[in-house]
Design a protein around this nucleic acid. Structure first.
Lengths: 144, 144
DNA sequence: TTGCGTGCAAACTGTTTGCACGCGT
DNA sequence: ACGCGTGCAAACAGTTTGCACGCAA
């Protein structure tokens, strides 16, 4: 815990990060792979995954945990919301202005025809909350 | 489109549906497989997937399109929201009462300690909206 | 007797991992 | 020289699919 290995900013990692910035929306790992490959033809998909992971651990990018079969990555590490096209899978950021009807924002600024919203709350369930506090107590006992 | 094949209610399909009702929350395909296997030891995982698919097509159950690596299935076909435990992955339904603070509901009725919300809107992006209307026009031209 | 639904196994997709090497420190 | 990060390939997990057969209509 808190044991942070030193992380080198290798050329691969740098270019992956750059391409992540260049990609319009939220690319999947192999969209990034395709882009990076144009500049580093010998890079492997495994390296892309490992670097995306490393960047996420460092908090430089965000792994998005969303619907859909492929994970997506995001240079915006703040929490925000998304619109997904049910037909082609396109994914865009949504900025929600309080007190302004969301459907209208989505229609006006994204041109989407909205069919549904899905809210997913996340946190700790009672059991895990319990488990966490007891394990923390144990840890602090060990330290003293 | 609208070409519905006749669907038989086979013993396998019936038992899968029953076990889906028995499962407390939203089981994954192989949680269902494990349960059904106690009653039909020779059933295959492929059959479970095909039946879950068929039931979803008929609108009897719902395929949940959520975060997480495994798809989950739900006998409740109405749109509703979820709480997920970030630690163990447990997933529960959330009933949102309008004008009542959501965090409080989640705390009071589920015991969850909420860390975040993620809203995902879905619908048709401008391009797919366009594509859909033009293909519909083409279809109705063909019919007449 | 037609063809849907099955069990089985192989294929497929997205992601992770073991290995040997090489390069920077 | 140490060891992190790499390319490559194999392993993995979840899901889908091709095939031959059997059973209900």
């Amino acid at each position: 815990m808190g044991k942070k290995k030193f992380q080198r900013m290798t050329p691969q990692r740098k270019i992956i990060l750059e391409e992540l910035h260049n990609a319009r929306f939220h690319p999947t790992a192999d969209e990034i792979y395709e882009r990076v490959r144009r500049r580093l033809p010998r890079i492997s998909l495994g390296t892309v995954y490992r670097n995306l992971d490393a960047l996420a651990v460092q908090g430089i990018i965000q792994k998005l945990d969303l619907a859909g079969s492929q994970r997506r990555f995001d240079v915006n590490t703040e929490i925000h919301h998304h619109v997904r096209c049910v037909s082609c899978g396109a994914l865009e950021d949504v900025v929600v202005l309080p007190l302004y009807p969301v459907e209208k924002i989505l229609q006006d600024t994204h041109g989407f025809e909205i069919q549904g919203v899905r809210m997913e709350f996340s946190g700790l369930c009672p059991r895990c909350k319990e488990a966490k506090t007891t394990s923390q107590e144990k840890q602090s006992q060990n330290k003293h």
